[in-house]
Simulated assay, not measured.
Amino acid sequence: MTPPEILTDSPSGHARAAAILRQGGLVALPTETVYGLAADATDDAAVASIYAAKGRPGHNPLIVHVPDLATAERLAAFPDPARALADAFWPGPLTLVLPLKPGHGLSPRVTAGLPTVALRLPAHPAMQAVLRETGRPLAAPSANPSGRITATTPAHVLAGLGPRIAAIVDAGPCRVGVESTILAPAPSGTRLLRDGGLAREMIEEITGPLIADTTPGATLEAPGQMSSHYAPHAPLLLGGTPQPGEITIGFGTTPGDLTLSPSGDLAEAARTLFSCLHTADALATARAAPAIRVALIPETGLGRAINDRLRRAAAPRD
Rank of each mutant, 00 (worst) to 15 (best):
residue 4 P to E: 04
residue 14 H to L: 11
residue 18 A to W: 02
residue 21 L to K: 05
residue 22 R to C: 08
residue 26 L to I: 01
residue 27 V to F: 01
residue 27 V to K: 00
residue 34 V to N: 05
residue 38 A to D: 10
residue 42 T to W: 12
residue 46 A to D: 02
residue 48 A to F: 03
residue 59 H to R: 12
residue 60 N to W: 08
residue 76 A to R: 00
residue 102 P to A: 13
residue 108 P to C: 11
residue 111 T to P: 05
residue 112 A to V: 10
residue 118 A to P: 14
residue 121 L to K: 09
residue 126 A to W: 03
residue 127 M to E: 11
residue 132 R to K: 14
residue 133 E to L: 14
residue 135 G to W: 10
residue 142 S to P: 07
residue 144 N to K: 11
residue 149 I to W: 03
residue 149 I to A: 03
residue 154 P to Q: 13
residue 154 P to G: 10
residue 156 H to C: 09
residue 161 L to E: 13
residue 172 G to A: 04
residue 181 T to V: 06
residue 185 P to I: 09
residue 186 A to P: 06
residue 198 L to G: 03
residue 204 E to T: 03
residue 205 E to T: 15
residue 206 I to K: 12
residue 206 I to F: 11
residue 209 P to N: 07
residue 219 T to P: 01
residue 227 S to C: 14
residue 230 Y to Q: 05
residue 237 L to R: 11
residue 240 G to V: 12
residue 242 P to M: 11
residue 242 P to F: 10
residue 248 T to V: 05
residue 251 F to V: 02
residue 254 T to F: 13
residue 255 P to H: 14
residue 258 L to A: 08
residue 259 T to Q: 02
residue 262 P to A: 10
residue 272 T to H: 09
residue 273 L to I: 08
residue 273 L to V: 11
residue 301 G to N: 00
residue 304 R to T: 05
residue 312 R to F: 15
residue 318 D to K: 09
